[in-house]
Computed example of a mutant assay.
Amino acid sequence: MNEFPQVATIAGTDSGGGAGVMADLKTMQARHVFGTAVVVAVTAQNTLGVQDFMAMPTKLIDEQFASLAADLDIRACKTGMLADAEHVHAVVENLKRVDFGPLTVDPVMIAKGGAALLAADAIKTVRDELLPLATVVTPNLPEAERLTGQAITSNQAMVTAGHALQGLGADNVIIKGGHGDNPDLANDFVLLADGTAFWLSAPRIDTVRTHGTGDTLSACITAELAKGRSMAAAIKTAKAYVAGTIQDGIQVGHGHGPLNHWATPSEQVIVHDA
Rank of each mutant, 00 (worst) to 15 (best):
P5K: 03
I10M: 08
G16A: 07
V21C: 12
A23W: 02
D24M: 07
T36S: 06
V39F: 02
V39K: 02
A41E: 00
Q45D: 11
N46D: 09
Q51N: 15
T58K: 15
A70W: 12
I74Y: 05
A76K: 02
A85K: 01
A90T: 09
R97Y: 10
L103C: 09
I110N: 08
A115W: 05
A115M: 05
A119N: 12
A122Y: 00
K124C: 13
T125M: 13
D128S: 15
D128G: 09
E129P: 10
L133M: 11
P139D: 08
N140L: 11
A144C: 12
G149P: 10
A151I: 12
M158Y: 08
A161R: 03
Q166N: 10
L168E: 10
N172Y: 05
N172F: 03
G178S: 10
G178I: 07
D181T: 15
N182S: 15
L185D: 15
A186M: 12
F189C: 07
L191H: 14
G195K: 05
A197V: 03
H211I: 00
T216C: 00
E224A: 06
G228E: 00
A232Q: 13
I235F: 03
K236T: 11
A238I: 04
A243S: 12
G249Q: 11
H256Y: 15
G257W: 00
H261I: 08
S266G: 04
S266N: 06
S266C: 01
V269Q: 05
V269R: 02
